[in-house]
Design a protein around this nucleic acid. Structure first.
Lengths: 339, 339
DNA sequence: AAATATTATGTAATCGATTACAAATGAGTG
DNA sequence: CACTCATTTGTAATCGATTACATAATATTT
């Protein structure tokens, strides 16, 4: 199939040692005398030897890869997290597999493990059915699963996440500081953990500030998309009394909202102040530029990857580190103004 | 390492046949009598057997995976292409590996093949050094490389791409129809193939329309980013005579341009008409909504994946199908107006 | 019914690394 | 010098599937 390169056997002959010694030199150099090590490395260099991963994986009963599962590959939000994950694994000799939980069937999913196609998973989808999760956990006895961004409540799997609640509170504090007291919230998809956290943060902050939470002003986004924001805007437009500011569950929601308001002749930030969540790249260049809560997506990816790598090498995550919270940051821009 | 499931041996015993027969049943059912097939499948079902990919790959001298190489994982432009690719491979039993040419060293790259970690590549980066490409081609004798979106001029590897030139012409035709004759172009990164094609399309269209190409109005983007567009806007602002419309090498450039113009009090489309390229998701919700050339990114991904899959199964691409051109579509929106 | 062709199945070698175990070598000690 | 212990290396079994080849069973032809 491939132009086959040299085998470990050829390296052994070249170096005048056994294959066992070559293998040791490569994977555990300390076991080998310095003279031998040099001879072997020279032979590797000379022959251009590259290990055959399939053989190695078979013998070591491993997959040599980790799997990243995300709810929707088409969503740009994830690309930077992937980038962070990738950067960590690029230096290991594990490959990174990517799959979309959208198109995937439960069976295929657990198949990744039973097939020994992956040694661990980074789950970016908190909406994964519990049955699948159980099966995953069963097929990977030592908990080779790490959640990133989202997570599944009620499971004790390690997770890396942004401080969603804190972010919501920062957003509200900012609006209050600008003089707003009538504040609404456009939430994300109803059953999403992020939605719940941000909503909880919103409610806590409103209460702390002594502000009234008007139920009609807390609307369901359906999802985190532009359309969800536009849809919410239409709802607000039909109200006889409106808030003066809204905190949105995502930047996309915020932009969809602003865009739809704009179409109806309502201006942000003059008539409405809007805060987003995520700080996606375009936020800075949207018109108006978007005030938002920045998530450090690369760091989320890096942390998740590092954690999984730790698990794989046997370092179990200490219970108190089970949830790693990543700070978020309020970025003040043009979509919010004093009342 | 993993809770080890049943082996093919156990299935064989359960079904009362040899391992060879089990293997045949699973990979080549026609070789086996119906009665045996049923017995084997029942045994597979009963034992919950899953193949061990490492063993299979070793024996078949394959990697069981394909590699997608992209210039920048953090760039959302690629996520939808990935999604298309993924959807094709989800039904095969090949895994999809993803790596970033940015962080990767040449050696690591060719290592993917020599290690037998990948059976084929989809290259989304036309800027890959020729040396690397040569080495890739050498280590994969049967041309298991397919370009998507971008490509490398002077190589005869199969490629799937949008009709960039045609897109540029549609853009110019649209502007001319609106009455514009003073038209500029903000190109992408100088050495990029897409940049060159779109620029060529721009020039051809201008000539066809009998319009003058003003060199100062054709500016270098540096890259395809928002910042590149903003930077170009600053250049235009300093000119004493400006065009009335610009065609941009990407949507991000267009948005950066519009945003920066807006900051300087110049309004799109009143003072300037702007056409983008790509039709990324936000284009429709940008303010103003962006007139642009839509690339069918999912289709690009699907076609590339299908082509590679064909190559892997021995179907060589016919010479005349070496370049697959995907149609683009002008989407008229709010960033262009009659003069 | 014998001869031949076809289909179905089993036996055992093979893919290329790792590692348990054994053996050889060398160092240190009384 | 004989003996113990540590270090280094080699031999060969092993991981779990696939497949070349041999053989058995069945169908077809004359």
């Amino acid at each position: 199939m491939n132009a086959k390169g040299p085998r470990i056997q050829e390296v052994a002959v070249e170096a005048g040692v056994s294959t066992a010694t070559v293998s040791r030199t490569l994977s555990n150099p300390d076991l080998v005398s310095e003279k031998t090590r040099e001879a072997v490395l020279a032979a590797v260099e000379k022959t251009g030897y590259r290990i055959n991963r399939a053989a190695q994986n078979l013998r070591k009963r491993q997959a040599g890869a980790i799997l990243v599962l995300l709810p929707n590959l088409g969503n740009p939000f994830f690309s930077q997290i992937l980038s962070g994950i990738e950067s960590v694994f690029a230096t290991s000799d594990l490959s990174v597999l990517i799959a979309d939980t959208n198109g995937i069937k439960q069976d295929q999913l657990t198949g990744y493990f039973r097939d020994t196609r992956a040694d661990g998973v980074i789950l970016l989808d908190g909406g994964i059915p519990r049955a699948v999760l159980n099966e995953l956990a069963q097929t990977t006895p030592d908990n080779r699963i790490v959640f990133a961004c989202e997570w599944k409540p009620g499971t004790d799997l390690p997770s890396v996440r942004s401080d969603n609640r804190g972010g919501a509170q920062q957003a509200i504090a900012h609006l209050v500081q600008l003089g707003h007291s009538k504040i609404g919230h456009i939430a994300g998809p109803r059953n999403n953990v992020l939605t719940k956290e941000r909503l909880a943060g919103f409610e806590a902050a409103m209460r702390n500030q002594g502000l009234e939470i008007v139920p009609r002003w807390v609307v369901d986004g359906g999802d985190f998309s532009l359309d969800a924001g536009a849809q919410a805007a239409r709802q607000f437009i039909e109200m006889d009394e409106r808030p003066t500011a809204v905190f949105c569950g995502s930047d996309l929601i915020a932009m969809g909202f602003i865009s739809e308001m704009h179409k109806r002749g309502i201006s942000v930030p003059n008539d409405f102040s809007v805060v987003g969540f995520d700080d996606i790249e375009i936020a800075d260049r949207f018109i108006p530029s978007l005030t938002t809560i920045r998530q450090n997506r690369t760091q989320l990816g890096v942390l998740a990857a590092t954690t999984l790598l730790g698990q794989l090498s046997g370092r179990a995550v200490a219970a108190q580190d089970n949830v790693q919270l990543v700070d978020v940051l309020l970025i003040k821009r043009g979509s919010t103004a004093a009342i």
